[in-house]
């Protein structure tokens, strides 16, 4: 399993300040730290890995170009990067005019042998969970990826999605509740089938 550790906010601000001052090392450190979560976020929403790679590179191109302009991020670097990624994904979907199709199997890591609950969940429901996710609205999918997948805070998620914190709380609750209903329906079908 990949464990993503994003920089703390103070460290992030220091990195951003150094990058804005033209320190190449800081720019590259930002790249190393934020490429995995940004790529993963995009990859979960885009069907093709090459497309995901292109979009991720575009995010960082925009970042390095903005460093020397008036639109450079000043605070919440990760929020800025996710916002850019989100806009690029939206543009990508508009161009394709299709919902992203993702091969489910590759997204799930091997089950942990230390957590029986996780073993049960992944063995029994891994595909079903993702199928249920795919049946949610785009915004519900997004909030689940950001909040649970990337483990962003409520504030960051709200900022990225342009919603209020209360709306994000409600949205994540409704999304999981919908998934629960879908999963239960699937179980019943299996048991009756």
């Amino acid at each position: 399993m990949i464990l993503l550790v994003l920089p703390d906010i103070p460290e992030e601000d220091a990195l951003l300040t150094a990058a804005r001052q033209g320190q190449e090392a800081a720019v590259m450190q930002i790249y190393e730290s934020y490429f995995p979560p940004i790529y993963e976020y995009i990859r979960l929403r885009v069907n093709d890995r090459h497309e995901a790679e292109d979009l991720t590179s575009e995010v960082f191109f925009k970042f390095v170009k903005s460093l020397r302009g008036p639109n450079a991020p000043r605070h919440s670097l990760r929020g800025w990067l996710f916002k850019v990624a989100r806009n690029l994904i939206a543009t990508h979907h508009v161009k394709l005019k299709q919902q992203p199709e993702i091969e489910l199997e590759e997204w799930f890591a091997a089950p942990s042998d230390q957590d029986p609950e996780v073993i049960f969940l992944q063995n029994l429901n891994s595909k079903a969970i993702y199928e249920a996710m795919r049946r949610l609205t785009a915004e519900q999918q997004e909030v689940l990826v950001l909040r649970f997948g990337q483990q962003l805070s409520l504030e960051e998620t709200a900022d990225i999605m342009g919603k209020s914190i209360g709306a994000i709380k409600t949205m994540q609750f409704r999304a999981v509740e919908s998934m629960r209903r879908l999963l239960n329906a699937g179980r019943k079908e299996e048991s009756y089938g």
């Binding site: 790249y31 490429f35 590759e106 993702y130 483990q151």
Partner: peptide, 24 residues
Amino acid sequence: EITRGIQRVRVPSAEISASQDRIR
């Protein structure tokens, strides 16, 4: 349980690393 399941949805690390190296 669903939340934990979603938390474990991950892109393979090899794919991430390969893309990161290509774009760097």
